[in-house]
Simulated assay, not measured.
Amino acid sequence: MKNFAYTRAGSLSAAAEAASAEGADIIAGGTTMVDLMKIGVRNPDALVDISGLSELEGHEIGADRIRLGALARMSTVADDPDVIAAFPALSESLWKAASPQLRNAATLGGNILQRTRCPYFRDTAYSQCNKRNPGSGCAALDGGETTLHAIFGGSEACVAMYPGDLAATLVAFDATVATRGPGGTRTIPFAELHVLPGDTPEIETVLEPGEIVTAIELPVVPAMRASHYLKARDRESYAFAAASAAVGLEMDGDTVRDVRIGLGGVAAVPWRATAAEDSLRGSPLTEATAREAGRIAFADAQPLEGSAYKIALGADVVAGALLQAKSRMGGE
């Protein structure tokens, strides 16, 4: 790890200004940043610590909106009884994301901005990584191991997978992200925060230099109460998803009135399965229709040889999450 300058920001405006300098990075909980600095993937000249900005802490469940401060800790939100009752999938996507130690330290803002777990990105012994070293190539596409890679949203330059759990829930439930930068504030639809790799995989979000995520907001909808986050992984604790699904249901008798399906562990960016949602609205939810929705969710997947298993696995995960969500509203 190289030497760097350290600044503890006293205000949000000061943090945005300091972070806009060339070579500067933001740090809060540090669970991703410090990790990447240790392995030489990130080498900032300066770190701007925003962990003391109390206005970015806390979370609130209102009648119409849920507001999550960017500095709210994963464990605090995941363990809140009000969150568990109002929006189970939110709690589950946080609870299943990391070890207790990391959940106690990691912030929501940092979580949604975490970097890929692609081994070729994280191991600097591999020179071929367009995301880490633009223009160098992609070791995964050049005959490398691809079991952890994206089957949606990849390009000829990069097939790295976005690894976060929380993001699958946020993209399914129309979250927005509030930011503050040197130029002022703005609100970004969460579905537009991350960008597909295309020819520039080193650009991962639409955030400008110095722009800081301050909060995450979601409109309250009935489907939140009957929601579930299901995650398939190599081991039960602290492992990234091979495939996951965040779903929510609103039923009118036996008919699906509203359904939300977000996918994790399978795409280059947080991914919403809109075609699968459309297949269920206005129809009964049975094991057969749940499995068909799972099939539709992965119908357009473009796997590599090593990642082809994610199609069948992901379809099963979607079906299982839907049926579990239905059981939470007394359905059979």
Score class of each variant (00 low, 15 high):
residue 4 F to R: 15
residue 9 A to T: 11
residue 13 S to A: 08
residue 15 A to V: 14
residue 17 E to C: 13
residue 18 A to M: 06
residue 19 A to T: 11
residue 19 A to C: 13
residue 22 E to P: 11
residue 24 A to M: 14
residue 26 I to Y: 10
residue 31 T to G: 10
residue 37 M to S: 13
residue 46 A to E: 14
residue 51 S to H: 14
residue 55 E to F: 02
residue 59 H to F: 01
residue 62 G to A: 04
residue 64 D to M: 10
residue 65 R to S: 06
residue 67 R to Y: 01
residue 71 L to T: 02
residue 74 M to K: 07
residue 78 A to F: 02
residue 90 L to E: 09
residue 92 E to R: 09
residue 96 K to T: 13
residue 104 N to S: 08
residue 106 A to I: 05
residue 111 N to T: 13
residue 113 L to I: 04
residue 114 Q to N: 14
residue 119 P to M: 01
residue 122 R to F: 13
residue 123 D to S: 12
residue 129 C to M: 03
residue 144 G to T: 03
residue 146 T to Q: 08
residue 148 L to Y: 14
residue 149 H to F: 03
residue 150 A to K: 01
residue 151 I to E: 14
residue 151 I to D: 12
residue 151 I to Q: 09
residue 152 F to N: 08
residue 153 G to D: 06
residue 154 G to A: 00
residue 154 G to P: 02
residue 157 A to S: 06
residue 159 V to T: 03
residue 160 A to K: 02
residue 165 D to Y: 03
residue 165 D to L: 05
residue 167 A to M: 05
residue 171 V to T: 00
residue 174 D to R: 06
residue 174 D to E: 12
residue 174 D to T: 10
residue 175 A to V: 04
residue 177 V to I: 06
residue 188 I to F: 04
residue 189 P to W: 07
residue 197 P to G: 01
residue 204 E to Y: 10
residue 206 V to K: 04
residue 206 V to H: 03
residue 210 G to H: 07
residue 210 G to P: 08
residue 216 I to A: 04
residue 216 I to H: 02
residue 217 E to H: 00
residue 217 E to T: 01
residue 218 L to Y: 00
residue 222 P to S: 05
residue 225 R to Y: 01
residue 225 R to N: 07
residue 226 A to M: 09
residue 227 S to A: 01
residue 237 S to I: 12
residue 238 Y to D: 15
residue 242 A to N: 13
residue 243 A to M: 13
residue 244 S to P: 14
residue 248 G to S: 08
residue 249 L to P: 02
residue 251 M to H: 06
residue 255 T to C: 05
residue 259 V to G: 09
residue 263 L to M: 10
residue 265 G to N: 11
residue 276 A to Q: 00
residue 290 A to Y: 01
residue 292 E to D: 04
residue 301 A to V: 11
residue 302 Q to N: 14
residue 307 S to N: 06
residue 307 S to Y: 05
residue 311 I to C: 07
residue 312 A to S: 10
residue 315 A to L: 09
residue 318 V to E: 06
residue 320 G to T: 11
residue 320 G to Q: 07
residue 321 A to W: 05
residue 325 A to Q: 12
residue 327 S to W: 09
residue 330 G to F: 11
